[in-house]
């Protein structure tokens, strides 16, 4: 309780400090007669690019978070734990295998899959199945695979993306899945203690959706802010230049995809424009982003326990790197 109070006090101090800081900036500008010049600051090209990218990620992400939260509310209200237990076998491999193909049933973008995964875990879906669903669904779905074909006009690239995403999601799902769901999910006490049984079904669904939206929405904003900062300030050419070597190109494309936080429906077109990079590094770029982009990482930390997220990120990063290196030495892919 004491540490909780201390945290609250610190947060209060930060808010007061920010308020006072802003007040002094405005007073200072007003006294120096440059308050009207403030418009020039807002028209600064760097700030304009930052705001456009930030809002683009949010306009793209929010509808999917909302759709995901709504699906999550529906699952909570209408689907019983028993139904999921029948559908998902207890066997780790089989449940990870099924989880990785669920994207064909719910083809949501990378932001929408998190509230659904959270609800699946709460409903007792085996952790291995939930993790592989979380990692694979933004890639192994008809829309993403079709957009990959449109971008490259090559079945090899589509197959390469599908295969590596499938192997990585199943492998990581099996590797890091704990026995108990409590080892994955963070608990939100206020949400747990609320009794919603006395309200109409419609309200119950949207109350669950509201909780999910409020938890994940703010972290999406923080993640999108970081992603747009990187996207505004870091030159893509830097990553493309250091990536002439086969192995380093995989690493640099992995890092670039994490920083750019592109939508899985669009990243194939961006990857296809990196003319000088190897095919394998392009495939890794298209898998790494939808699995662990910076905006997703922040939401992962909001929803899942810290220890679990660290394990998840490290294993996805290393698995993709190893698969990328091995793949780049196999002719034809």
């Amino acid at each position: 309780m004491k540490t909780q109070k201390r945290k609250e006090e610190n947060l209060k101090k930060i808010l007061i400090f920010l308020g006072v800081f802003l007040f002094f900036i405005i007073i200072n500008l007003w006294q120096s007669g440059t308050l009207s010049e403030i418009n020039k600051i807002f028209q600064n090209p760097k700030l304009q690019v930052f705001v456009i990218i930030l809002f683009a990620i949010l306009i793209e992400g929010f509808p999917f978070i909302l759709i995901g939260s709504f699906i999550s509310g529906l699952i909570e209200v209408f689907v019983s734990e028993e139904k999921f237990k029948k559908f998902f076998p207890e066997n780790r491999f089989l449940s990870a295998f099924i989880g990785s193909f669920l994207g064909f049933l719910f083809p949501v973008c990378s932001c929408g899959e998190i509230p659904v995964t959270r609800r699946l875990i709460k409903k007792g879906v085996p952790p291995a199945g939930s993790i592989s669903y979380l990692l694979a669904t933004a890639i192994i779905n008809p829309i993403t695979l079709f957009s990959t074909y449109l971008a490259f006009s090559s079945i090899k690239m589509v197959f390469g993306r599908f295969l590596i995403a499938f192997i990585c999601s199943v492998f990581v799902g099996i590797l890091i899945a704990p026995k108990e769901k409590d080892e994955i999910l963070k608990k939100y006490e206020k949400e747990e203690h609320e009794n919603l049984k006395h309200i109409p079904k419609f309200q119950e669904i949207f109350t669950h959706a509201l909780h999910d939206f409020l938890i994940m929405g703010k972290y999406l904003i923080i993640g999108a802010t970081l992603a747009s900062l990187f996207s505004t300030l870091i030159s893509r050419d830097f990553f493309l230049m250091i990536g002439r070597n086969k192995i380093i190109s995989i690493l640099s494309m992995q890092i670039l995809s994490i920083l750019l936080s592109l939508c899985s429906y669009a990243d194939a077109f961006v990857a296809s424009s990196f003319t000088y990079m190897s095919s394998m590094s392009k495939i890794i770029f298209m898998i790494s982003g939808p699995m662990m982009s910076i905006s997703l990482m922040i939401v992962y930390f909001a929803v899942f326990k810290e220890k679990f997220v660290k394990k998840l990120l490290i294993s996805v990063f290393l698995t993709l790197f190893v698969l990328g290196v091995v793949g780049s030495f196999i002719k034809g892919i």
């Binding site: 090209p45 304009q48 690019v49 705001v51 456009i52 505004t232 493309l240």
Partner: peptide
């Protein structure tokens, strides 16, 4: 506050 209208050329230079 910023009322953006389209991406400025700064973005073009950063992206190549």
């Amino acid at each position: 506050l910023t009322r953006p209208s389209n991406l400025p050329t700064y973005a073009a230079l950063k992206r190549g």
